[in-house]
Amino acid sequence: MKLIRYPETLVSNWTPFDQLASIRDDFNRLFESGFAPLFREARMLGGWAPALDVHEENDALVVIAELPGMKKEEIDISLHKGLLTISGERKEETPSDEGKFHRNERFYGKFSRTVSLPAEVDANGVTASYRDGLLTVRLPKSEEAKPKQITVGEN
């Protein structure tokens, strides 16, 4: 009676989690192809709503918005009472004598998104840049909003 040990290369380990990962991928695909258009439609009720991220660093807040195919001049950024509003209008870049649409998933027209900022910012120091269709707004925090180290005293 001998116990045979197979070298690793001959028998591949079956990991059940591989299948879970592919199920997850299938779900992603389903949501993308099936539901994504519905999700957009829902946003359409209020107009086109570009996707955005808000990050908080020690010294500043950073807001990134996906705004492909715009001109800098067509983007409006305003700050009021802790609310940042990014708005504008996207016009069709190519004239319509370019031809008729076979399919159009892109949005045109006015858009507006407002986010409530999680910290107080210094309005004078706000900068924004637009590159490759991404708008990045950097809002430096006001002095009071920055995290402070408090040292514990002796008595």
Binding site: D97, E98, G99, K100, F101, H102, R103, E105, R106
Partner: peptide, 8 residues
């Protein structure tokens, strides 16, 4: 998101 057009 894609738009497909065909010209004349």
């Amino acid at each position: 998101a894609t738009a497909i057009r065909q010209s004349n």
